[in-house]
């Protein structure tokens, strides 16, 4: 993942799961999980996610007269909400797919589990 793409994923993820915005250790663990899943995706899917992130960035100029990266957290959240209402279904579908990857990556972090009362794998000796 190149730094710009990674940064934009984090910025989107912080809106999907606010805890990522508030906790650096969780943010680090989240992006590690996201990278593991992303790198295992088929090439076509990975390309589509890259494209979606690029579109998110470009559209930000239209909606906010600013790059996505420079938006405040509040503005970012408002903008993502607008994208979820976007008239082109495939943008919404793509964003929903990205939302899924973000949620799976975040809730795959061991340190998140106590907050949802999940005890994790049964057999801790598993590799």
């Amino acid at each position: 993942m190149n730094p710009h793409f990674k940064q934009n994923i984090i910025l989107i993820a912080e809106v999907i799961v606010p805890e990522i915005h508030e906790n650096d250790a969780i943010k680090y663990a989240f992006i590690k999980n996201f990278k593991q899943i992303y790198q295992g995706l088929e090439k076509d899917s990975a390309t589509k996610i890259k494209l979606l992130v690029k579109v998110t960035d470009k559209l930000s100029y239209v909606y906010n007269s600013s790059s996505f990266e420079r938006l405040s957290y509040k503005k970012r959240a408002e903008y993502i909400e607008k994208l979820f209402q976007f008239p082109i279904g495939k943008i919404v579908g793509g964003l929903t797919g990205l939302r899924s990857l973000i949620l799976i990556s975040y809730y795959g972090v061991d340190d998140v589990w106590p907050s949802i009362n999940y005890n994790g794998p049964v057999n801790s000796t598993l590799k």
Binding site: I16, V17, P18, E19, I104
Partner: peptide, 19 residues
Amino acid sequence: PGVTAKNIPGYGKMHQEIM
């Protein structure tokens, strides 16, 4: 947890509280 979170509509603070 991850798939359950994906299956619950929405996102943000409310989604996190539900989880």
